[in-house]
Computed example of a mutant assay.
Amino acid sequence: MTTVTTAGLDQLHDPDRDGIPIVLSVDVAQQLAREVLDGCAAASIHSHRAMMEAAVSLDLRLRSLLAALDAEEGR
């Protein structure tokens, strides 16, 4: 059995380091998330770079969308 460790690797997101500087409206955040999702749909699964770009783009848009929803709900 193989054990996978992430020791020594940088996290994609570090809450202490990364924040969302501007909280968008839900409508804008949702539209941007849809645009990124559409753009990622054409990414080649055989391209490491394309998959990394898609992962980072989707992570950022999802965090932005959740921040907008949290702000709307008063969290």
Rank of each mutant, 00 (worst) to 15 (best):
D38L: 15
R63L: 12
I22P: 00
V56E: 05
R34F: 12
A7R: 13
Q30I: 02
Q11D: 12
D14R: 10
A33N: 08
H46T: 11
E53R: 11
A7L: 14
R61L: 04
A67W: 02
D10F: 10
Q30V: 03
G19E: 09
M51G: 00
R63T: 02
L62Q: 06
S64K: 03
T6G: 05
A55S: 12
D14A: 11
G19V: 11
H13K: 11
R75F: 11
A43I: 04
R34K: 14
L66M: 13
A29Q: 01
E72W: 10
C40T: 07
S44M: 10
S44C: 07
V23R: 03
G39H: 10
A54P: 01
L69I: 09
A71W: 00
L32P: 00
M51E: 07
R61T: 09
L58V: 08
L9K: 13
L12A: 10
L69Y: 03
D18S: 07
L65R: 01
A67C: 04
A7E: 13
V28K: 14
R63Y: 04
V56K: 09
A67E: 05
D70N: 09
A29E: 02
M1C: 04
E72S: 14
A50H: 11
A41W: 14
T2E: 08
R63V: 02
D70R: 14
I20Q: 02
D59Q: 13
M1Q: 05
L37P: 01
H46C: 06
I22K: 12
L12W: 14
D10T: 11
L66E: 03
L60Y: 03
R17N: 12
E72K: 15
L65V: 02
S47Q: 06
A29P: 01
S47N: 06
I20P: 00
D18Y: 08
S47E: 05
D18A: 10
S57H: 06
D14G: 02
A55M: 15
P15T: 08
E73P: 01
R75K: 15
E73M: 14
D14N: 14
T5D: 07
R63F: 05
D16Q: 15
E53A: 07
V23M: 08
D27Y: 03
H46Q: 13
A7M: 08
T6H: 05
S47Y: 06
H13S: 07
D59R: 11
L12T: 04
E73W: 08
V56Q: 06
R75W: 12
R17V: 15
A71E: 04
D59F: 05
R63S: 02
L12K: 08
Q11S: 14
A54T: 03
I22D: 10
C40H: 02
Q30N: 09
V56W: 02
L12R: 12
E53G: 06
L24V: 03
S44E: 13
D18Q: 15
G74F: 00
L9T: 08
G74V: 04
S25E: 13
A67T: 04
A68Y: 01
A71Y: 02
R49T: 12
L58Y: 02
L58A: 09
R49E: 15
E72I: 07
D14F: 03
D14S: 09
A71Q: 03
